[in-house]
């Protein structure tokens, strides 16, 4: 007892200092944030600054020294039709897949809110694409779309939807190829969006649903006039994430189509890789990859503002 008391009365110097530090909110905040800050600076900030620097020089993969060339690399990139094709494809890819993601994620989130047996298992399955490495999933899709062994074609033929002469080449025709990469991307983005929207839907108090039911709102009125406006801020966040992820993604395209057939699925991110790394012109690759940056910043700003404005208590 005496030992305990003396201990409590006079803690050792180092320990008390530590305890004082742990109690200091300012110190603690910084200590806890530091790993994240280091992570972001090292893996996001540094490469971004590097890309900015590269884009205004004539650096190649084979040179360490480079001279300042201003915006020449941007001009160079913009002179090529392949670049404008990639801009168009990026927009198409992003907008269509995001539209699908939002509609499907909304539906999925609603389904997940229902109570049914084995719900945890379904939730797990739905989360799987997000958790699994994207390259693994994409390789799976590569086989699904394979020109010889396509699982889709095989199945549709065996259940009699395709005749013996029908055998679409999913990755060989520009429209189908675009549809294919959009499919893969939707598959990939859906879990995150669904979970975000699930959070949004769960955040609507039960009373509001009840009130709408009592007030006589039918399905569409409830969806469009009550639920949609209430989840809008969070949906906007999901869309924003989706747009940024989609517009800057190259893994799906790199693995599935490599931009083909004939550049019809080439997006800015993949074009930047082919130009910068495989083609060796790091500077132009950097310029291409930065092209969307101002636009994405603008979109992010607008969406966050909108989300704030529609925020409700």
């Amino acid at each position: 007892m005496t030992a305990l008391a003396s201990h409590a009365a006079a803690p050792t110097g180092a320990r008390s200092r530590l305890r004082r530090l742990a109690d200091s909110e300012r110190f603690l905040a910084w200590a806890l944030l530091a790993p994240a800050v280091v992570f972001i600076v090292a893996l996001v900030g540094f490469p971004f600054v590097l890309a900015l620097l590269y884009s205004v020089t004539n650096v190649t993969v084979g040179t360490q020294s480079a001279s300042f060339v201003g915006l020449a690399k941007f001009r160079q990139a913009m002179e090529s039709p392949a670049f404008w094709g990639a801009v168009r494809n990026t927009f198409l890819f992003t907008l269509v897949s995001q539209a699908l993601v939002i509609v499907l994620a909304g539906t999925l989130a609603r389904l997940l809110m229902m109570e049914f047996r084995g719900k945890w298992f379904v939730r797990l399955l739905i989360l799987l694409p997000w958790v699994a490495p994207i390259s693994l999933g994409s390789i799976g899709w590569l086989w699904i779309f394979d020109s010889i062994y396509s699982v889709i074609n095989w199945t549709l033929r065996h259940i009699g939807i395709f005749g013996p002469e029908t055998w679409p080449i999913w990755l060989g025709q520009p429209t189908l190829a675009m549809a294919s990469i959009i499919t893969v991307h939707v598959w990939r983005m859906l879990p995150l969006a669904a979970i975000i929207m699930l959070a949004g839907f769960s955040g609507i108090p039960k009373d509001i649903h009840d009130a709408a039911a009592i007030d006589g709102a039918g399905f569409w009125r409830r969806e469009l006039q009550i639920i949609l406006p209430l989840v809008l801020p969070i949906v906007l966040v999901a869309v924003l994430f989706g747009i940024v992820f989609t517009a800057t993604d190259m893994i799906v395209i790199f693995i599935i189509t490599r931009g083909g057939p004939f550049d019809s699925t080439q997006v800015l991110a993949s074009l930047a890789y082919y130009t910068g790394i495989d083609g060796g012109d790091l500077a132009e690759g950097a310029a291409i990859s930065l092209f969307l940056f101002p636009l994405l910043v603008a979109i992010a700003y607008l969406m966050l503002r909108l989300a704030r404005r529609t925020e409700v208590t």
Partner: peptide, 20 residues
Amino acid sequence: LAPRDRNIAMVFQSYALYPH
């Protein structure tokens, strides 16, 4: 019958006003 077919009105503890 569904609530809307019962011609009733309800006031909730949280008021459940539509915030938007």
